[in-house]
Design a protein around this nucleic acid. Structure first.
Lengths: 337, 337
DNA sequence: TTGTAGGCGTTATCAA
DNA sequence: TTGATAACGCCTACAA
């Protein structure tokens, strides 16, 4: 059995109270006592039991994040970077990060959240890829579980979030393509239930209006934010009587699928066709050709979200609690033509 | 405050003992009592507190996994799939998964493991990307923390692991390239401290010997298992007086970097140059051209590892405890030439 | 400045 | 078949 606070107290002929207070930096402990306690605790390898501490404090010092996976993998490097940010920031606050994966709006997803919430395994939750109507928001609110969102739902909300202004971003992207002479610009979106689809599609439309280009619905496809989704959507776009000269994907993965489809058809991207994505994760640098994209600060956003969540958990003031950032347009070869 | 076992007991005029036993399926509870308890517990929304249960049982029902990241991101889709497998299998055993990232052999890594182990936050740990000499093995053993490994260390070990026979795999890859007429086959490896480097490099050498091709050290480079590493190594290979006609990367990411370097030099992969990788994650299908690779069953391996770890934690027999799998050669366009 | 004691919510031992 | 009670290890109000 591991060494407990009792063992330390016994060795020092002190009460466990004093040991506890010395280690927790209370100021009503004699300086010499504190030092004695510190050094022997270290020597004995004493570390407080998380289980005992959690029970007593009614806190787990754990936050949870469910990766919106589809199937046996989440291939989006967005999440890799996001998780790295969550984990790093959590540890720097002496919290830990619980992770699982679930496909949005499935029974598995519900059970996962219920599992974490009802047994009070986590103190708070990070939400991403929000849906227009998101059961999780209502659920967490009802259960008094602190949460922060990456993006937001359809309705105005009082809950804390960080949002990347992808609406403005996509308008910017369209503007860029128009400046390169494109007028038949296609958009491969995400399922409609996701807020990001509403925003990015709206940005696309805004960009078209600004350039006085009428919306052509045949140039709008639905993908699923994966390479495969972008690939299939692009194939159908290529079969149009008047195919697009530019294609924007709702994210980089979608755009990567487009690149593949183009290549299979012998279309040279950057010359015959312009392609752009969104996210700006590392893959976009390594595609062939490198991908024009909108970069959002994934790692930093994740860190900031954790800081916000922990403030919430600890009932500290949160200012500001609703942050909107602008994505940055990165122009690369894929829109050179 | 959430509903406790006391609340349930009070409502039913039963002792907490009986409630606890009824819910835990003990067989010394009257059938009708059990049903009564079950239904009211459900109605009241009672779920045992993890904190209390953990303290009492001296178990957290949590396993941990540290992703070997470099910097602010882990870009290898291998880990995405691996984590999905870990998470799914953990939940199916009523365990949860704690995740963090750390660069191998850094202070941060040490602190992370120490943090999890010393406070008994996790019941067991999954180890991957083992080093020839891996401090973690000795550390976990000394602290009596159950663990399983994906791959293994230099020395013979009695600890449970699943290993993919990448040595045989790389020999196979070389054989494939030789059959396509290549004799100047380069290898871009990983840092030498990783066991996977020893194995894959050995496999490469075996493959050459089997074909009676002498090892040419100028064709052997060190990468770092990232796209950037493969990219830079390939650039130096292209500058050789007699450059290779085929390049094998230690993993798919490395190979992807090679593809990019080739493209920038105007080298057509699949015609002027053959390129192959290892892992067989989804990206390898979507590169341009699609990548010949060795596929390992990442998701399934992760699940199996969790099952093994949990058996270990619960002191159940583990048979077999050391598993070696063969990777599967996937031939695609990148080695067509 | 230090110690006593109660309780966080369970599970498990033992007695009834 | 059920119930009283004692831990599990820690934190903290209160007493000394």
């Amino acid at each position: 059995m591991a060494v407990t606070i009792r063992d330390v107290a016994k060795k020092l002929n002190l009460s466990i109270t004093t040991v506890s207070r010395a280690l927790d930096d209370y100021d009503d402990v004699a300086h010499t006592t504190r030092e004695r306690v510190r050094s022997t605790a270290r020597k004995m390898g004493y570390v407080p039991s998380r289980a005992a501490r959690n029970l007593r404090r009614q806190r787990a010092d754990i936050i949870g994040y469910v990766i919106p996976a589809s199937g046996t993998r989440f291939t989006d490097p967005f999440f890799s970077e996001f998780i790295a940010g969550l984990g790093d920031q959590a540890v720097s606050h002496n919290f830990d990060l619980l992770i699982s994966t679930a496909t949005p709006d499935t029974e598995k997803e519900k059970q996962l959240y219920a599992r974490w919430v009802s047994s009070r395994l986590v103190d708070g939750i990070i939400l991403s890829r929000l849906r227009l109507e998101d059961w999780r928001v209502e659920y967490l609110q009802r259960n008094h579980v602190p949460f922060v969102m990456h993006g937001r739902t359809q309705s105005k909300t009082k809950f804390p979030f960080i949002e990347i202004d992808s609406r403005a971003g996509f308008a910017l992207l369209v503007k860029h393509l128009v400046e390169r002479g494109h007028r038949r610009i296609a958009y491969i979106g995400a399922p409609e239930k996701f807020t990001l689809q509403r925003d990015r599609y709206a940005g696309y439309q805004n960009g078209l209006s600004a350039a006085n280009i009428p919306l052509d619905k045949t140039l709008v496809c639905q993908g699923d934010l994966t390479r495969a989704g972008g690939y299939h959507a692009a194939q159908s776009l290529f079969q149009l009587r008047k195919p697009p000269t530019a294609i924007i994907g709702a994210n980089d993965l979608t755009a990567e699928g487009v690149l593949r489809a183009a290549r299979e058809r012998g279309i040279v991207v950057g010359r015959d066709l312009a392609v752009a994505g969104y996210d700006g994760t590392e893959v976009s640098e390594h595609t062939q050709p490198p991908l024009t994209t909108l970069r959002q600060p994934v790692y930093e956003t994740a860190r900031k979200l954790v800081t916000m969540l922990i403030a919430l958990i600890q009932n500290e003031p949160l200012e500001p609690s609703q942050i909107i950032l602008q994505p940055e347009l990165i122009i690369r070869e894929s829109t050179a033509g």
